[in-house]
Write a protein that binds this DNA or RNA. Structure first.
Lengths: 339, 339
DNA sequence: CTGAAAGCGCTTACAG
DNA sequence: CTGAAAGCGCTTACAG
């Protein structure tokens, strides 16, 4: 079972490589190749299971029919979901996706972008560390099609599909206030990510609007690498300090999970003593004790729109930047103190 | 900022493309190219940010430095984790990974395999639907490097890295029996998947060993597409029948989550009335009410070993098939009735 | 209607 | 120590 090439088919059928190539690319009719010849070629190719070499094809045509996806971490449920939607959508349009995780490392992200370009991807979708302005600028300079998802660069004009982080935590915090909570804490990642900053501001804004003065001591920051260990101390500080909180907003799902673990360990009753809300959720958040109120993001929409925009870009169909800010949804469960 | 090619560098530096290519591929020394020339080339390439075209490179060398990953669903936590480990491992060895989800559709899986070959991947890692014998045979016939993960073909000799499914549910069921349960149910997916069959047999084996006669009425099957809807009925049958169960083993994490939802809806106390064990787990299974005892799989080991074996295969270093069956771990939590 | 030929951007024997 | 040339397997003007 040896591999078959274009020239093998051509020789066997006594036609030229050109003819074979044209027919196999559905350009037979437009080049007026006789039906008979077309049929013979198609039949032979099918029978012998011909598969074109996409490397050669890509090299020759100057495009690879591949799009690159760079995300912080493919193992994170949120990004895994987005990746799934992107792949499905892209596949339907004839594109293959190659992916890599940056693990929030800007340098690694930079290398990944370069590596994707090496591989001649036709376009790029990236959920950036938000610390690679120069790489983003470089992409813009060479007019390379790309769209940012989940995180964008506020002071750069690019295409992006993100979520309204500010509004998300604002709504959630307001809801907590409506439930009578007024000493609301916020647990987030150490600064750096613009998205996290937005979530913090949304939280603060809700407090201020309600006439509650934001308290620095109510904001805890943990590191991405060590949050499991650090969470214990932070939760302790929040619940045991003189100005202990009666609610906590977590800036992302895994922090919420870790936080809930600590609250349980300290025998703090949720939501009675401390209500909990999470930005984004894990699969079983409706089954936890108590079920966790979450600010959920439209992963499928993010994926779908990103691919759509990217396609338009690659086909040169658009000019100007397309900016999409999607709404989050507040899914209310017991952890925030209702009934 | 136009793109730079090999010939541009050659012309600029007054050397041949050969020399440039050799130097850039670290073959300068072995080809005794003068240090001076090497330095000039390296410096120029770096300064002008030269990136080689991997399509051309791959075409020329007959390999793409890419490996393909085909899994049932990238959005599933388990596969997402594996994908993460595979990507990380592969990247470290200079390989890029392209992935696609089969969504348990054998035909789609077949197309995916073909499409990956088109793209000249150097090797393939697949968590198969277990219904594509002929494709697998075809890969073997052309001696193409591939390794199966998670699911294998019992009557085909291939490389694979799987988990001992039989032993997994057996241990778990034995544990339930040790806790005094003797009317143990099993909820799984409609037949087709060999892995699920193994899990069922492990469960039955434990029952038989303990002198408990397996009861057909205690085994429920739901469909992959509609398990959410069907779960209600199945759980109802299990807990409300004349021979109602006092424990349930779920054959996979999302079934366990759905099952627990139904048990709650029916106000069945877990674990008091019905104990629960899940094969595999979701991220928050330690936080659910009650925390769910799980048979966990070593995702990192699966990913790591799969890549290792594949690399050996691609380098032609091995002969014969490498078969790895990894152990699962029983993580005991409250849902199975302890304390 | 169909074919010969150039070209995509690399790598790599081979020759000197 | 270095270069000219062939080749990887396609696509696509161009010519007839």
């Amino acid at each position: 079972m040896k591999r078959l090439f274009l020239k093998d088919i051509a020789k066997e059928l006594n036609v030229s490589k050109t003819t074979v190539s044209l027919v196999l690319n559905n350009k037979g009719d437009e080049n007026k190749i006789s039906q008979d010849t077309q049929q013979r070629i198609l039949a032979y190719a099918k029978e012998h299971n011909y598969v074109p070499n996409q490397l050669a094809r890509g090299l020759s045509r100057g495009k690879s029919e591949t799009i690159g996806l760079i995300i912080p971490n493919i193992s994170d449920v949120f990004y895994a979901r987005i990746a799934g939607f992107i792949e499905r959508q892209a596949k339907g349009l004839g594109y293959t996706v190659i992916f890599s995780s940056s693990y929030e490392d800007p340098q690694k992200e930079g290398e990944l972008i370069k590596s994707m370009l090496d591989r001649q991807v036709d376009g790029l979708i990236v959920a950036s560390t938000q610390k690679n302005q120069s790489e983003i600028d470089a992409l813009k300079n060479i007019n390379f099609p790309f769209v940012l998802i989940d995180r964008h660069y506020p002071d750069r004009e690019t295409d992006y599909v993100i979520v309204d982080n500010f509004e998300g935590t604002k709504k959630a915090t307001e809801h907590l206030i409506d439930q009578g909570r007024n000493k609301i804490g916020f647990v987030t990642l150490k600064p750096g990510l613009e998205v996290m900053q937005q979530r913090l501001v949304g939280y603060q804004d809700a407090l201020i609007n309600a006439g509650i003065k934001p308290d620095k001591n109510h904001v805890s920051e943990v590191s991405r690498e060590n949050f499991m260990e650090e969470m214990g101390l932070e939760i302790k500080k929040l619940v045991e300090s003189s100005s202990s909180v009666d609610a906590i907003v977590f800036s992302t799902h895994y922090l919420a999970a870790a936080g809930l673990r600590e609250l349980k360990r300290l025998n703090v009753e949720v939501p009675k003593e401390v209500a909990v809300v999470s930005f984004d959720e894990l699969n079983a958040f409706d089954l936890t004790d108590p079920p966790i109120t979450s600010i959920t993001q439209p992963a499928s929409e993010i994926g779908r729109q990103a691919v759509d925009i990217l396609m338009d870009k690659m086909e040169g169909k658009t000019n100007g930047s397309i900016e999409r800010i999607l709404e989050t949804k507040l899914t209310i469960r017991k952890s925030c103190g209702v009934a």
